[in-house]
Computed example of a mutant assay.
Amino acid sequence: MYSADFIKNYVKKIFHLQDTTDQEGTVNNINENIDLKGYNIWILICSAVLASIGLDVNSAAVIIGAMLISPLMSPILGVGLSFGINDKEMLTRSLRNLGMATFISLITAYIYFTITPLGDATAEILARTQPTLLDVMVAFFGGIAGIVSGSRKEKTNAIPGVAIATALMPPLCSAGFGLATGQLMIFAGAFYLFIINAIFISLSTYLVIKFLQFPLRQYMDVKTRKRVSRIMSFALLFVVIPSGYFLWEVYLKNKMNRQVQNIIINKISNDETEVLKWNQ
């Protein structure tokens, strides 16, 4: 029989991350990509146009392409990293660039959906207007995968998958559609999904940075640390509670769908009656 210490050490060895972490390289890489200027702005605009076209024609392939080239992830990672290492200057730059990128993406999508000859609320747009707790989990675990992958000495190929899973640009462009067509509920739901993704990617980045024990840039006293923790807790609750309500609504709707399907298949269909087509 293996001893408890042997099992503990074995598990620790499997999940150990510190030995392969490039702390200085991770900080430098994220810090260098926070600022959106020059070629990054052009890529951001192109990504917003591609995502808008994909949403407009209901093309998942085009939307995925827009996710892969979008530079929105860098300032969001910068927010989580700056909290983790207590770098106020990096936090200010990250928030400023994230706000600018959000505004530019919204305006680009707004202009596109104002002039497009199509402009209907497609399935791809509507799919991003009612986020649930499942979207919170996608953003959180996608963010963990992203920062763990990005902090390795030997880089992995997980970053493109994280960009697709967390889907930052399509919700923003869906919000731009809501603005352009005057459908404020679509705007609110899509922008809420973007806020969820941004906050929980930043949160997962912060937690991984603290777990990997990145050195602090500035000392934070106990009083300030508690105040920051309270603010973050209230912000997370404010974001999560509506998504829990939406998940409950989705559960009730699916439950009703199963009940209706059960009635149609098991009670209406028999040897003398055949249901050829039904819709709800």
Rank of each mutant, 00 (worst) to 15 (best):
Y2L: 14
D5R: 13
D5W: 09
I7S: 06
N9R: 13
V11M: 15
K12Y: 10
K12E: 15
F15N: 09
Q23I: 15
N28W: 10
N31C: 11
N33E: 12
N33T: 03
L36T: 13
G38P: 08
Y39P: 10
N40I: 07
L44P: 06
I45M: 08
A48M: 13
L50E: 05
S52I: 07
L55K: 07
D56F: 02
D56W: 04
A60G: 12
A60N: 13
A61Y: 03
I63S: 03
A66I: 03
A66E: 06
M67G: 05
M67V: 11
L68W: 06
I69E: 07
M73G: 11
S74C: 10
P75D: 10
I76L: 04
I76C: 02
V79P: 05
G80H: 01
G80A: 00
F83Y: 09
I85L: 11
D87N: 13
L91F: 09
R93I: 01
R93Q: 14
N97T: 09
G99D: 10
S105I: 03
S105P: 08
T108N: 09
Y110T: 06
I111Y: 03
I111F: 11
L118Y: 09
L118V: 07
G119V: 00
A121G: 11
T122Y: 00
A123V: 13
I125M: 01
L126N: 05
A127D: 08
A127G: 10
V136M: 00
A139D: 01
G142S: 08
G142M: 02
I147C: 00
G150V: 03
G150D: 02
R152H: 07
K153E: 08
T156V: 07
N157C: 13
I164P: 00
A165G: 13
T166V: 15
M169A: 10
P170C: 05
A175Q: 02
A190S: 15
A190L: 11
I195N: 02
A198I: 04
F200H: 03
L203C: 01
S204M: 00
T205D: 02
T205M: 04
L207S: 03
L207A: 00
L207K: 02
L207N: 00
Q218P: 12
Y219N: 15
M220Q: 15
D221T: 12
R225Y: 08
R225H: 13
R225E: 14
R227P: 05
S229I: 01
F238H: 08
L247C: 01
E249M: 12
V250T: 09
K255E: 15
N257I: 10
N266Y: 06
S269D: 08
N270H: 03
T273P: 04
E274K: 14
E274N: 11
W278N: 12
